[in-house]
């Protein structure tokens, strides 16, 4: 990049790329149907009123707009939706308010299903899934907590109990049987 270009394009360059015209080949015309297939309601009925964004506790904190995600879905901009929907806390407040009766929270859940199948899997999902097959719960048992429990003369957490090994074994079998391990990419962890 020459000096002149640096002056005129540095910082602007990225912006220009971001704002470029969306090519039709980037759109998936049947995306709305795919969402219905994975349990979401028909996003095409959305009026884009923005009520869901306004009531969303997540939207207030980070740059995430429920309405925009739904707009991407209507438009068929699949690539832009994958990866963003994990921040939804599924509090269902958007569903309470939606005048089009869509239930955006369940659209987000459908988008997660789609993302996983597309192989767009955030690392924390893998961690949680690994925890599930290792400890029978998606949150890793905290050794510090166990120490405190002992001091307070409380029982062991169930995952440490002897019977629990059987439960974990059953979970492993189930996860393998439905192909969840393969889907998430944790086949190595599963002892089935």
């Amino acid at each position: 990049m020459g000096e002149v270009e640096k002056v005129f394009l540095s910082g602007l360059h990225e912006k220009l790329v971001e704002d470029k015209v969306i090519d039709e080949s980037q759109l998936e015309p049947d995306f709305a149907k795919e969402i219905v297939k994975y349990g979401g309601k028909d996003v095409m009925t959305c009026l884009q009123c923005g009520n869901c964004t306004g009531v969303c506790p997540i939207s207030l904190k980070i740059d995430y707009k429920t309405r925009i995600i739904i707009k991407y879905c209507q438009f068929g901009l699949k690539t832009l939706t994958l990866g963003t929907q994990w921040v939804c806390a599924t509090c269902y407040r958007c569903y309470e308010h939606c005048p089009a009766d869509i239930n955006p929270a369940e659209v987000m859940i459908a988008l997660r299903h789609i993302a996983i199948r597309e192989g767009v899997i955030p690392p924390f999902i893998k961690v949680a899934a690994t925890n599930l097959v290792k400890y029978g719960q998606s949150v890793k048992p905290d050794l510090e907590v166990e120490k405190i429990r002992k001091e307070l003369e409380l029982e062991d957490v169930p995952s440490r109990g002897a019977e629990y090994a059987k439960v974990i074994r059953e979970i492993n079998v189930l996860i393998h049987a439905v192909g969840y391990d393969k889907l998430i990419g944790i086949e190595d962890e599963v002892k089935a």
Binding site: Q48, G50, N51, T53, G54, V55, K65, R67
Partner: peptide
């Protein structure tokens, strides 16, 4: 945009509207 939340100021009784300006 469709307003999401209305809150009242207990002193002035004025109302704050929160909405996404779409």
């Amino acid at each position: 945009g469709r307003p999401a939340k209305l809150t009242e100021d207990p002193e002035t009784k004025s109302i704050t509207i929160r909405a996404e300006e779409t």
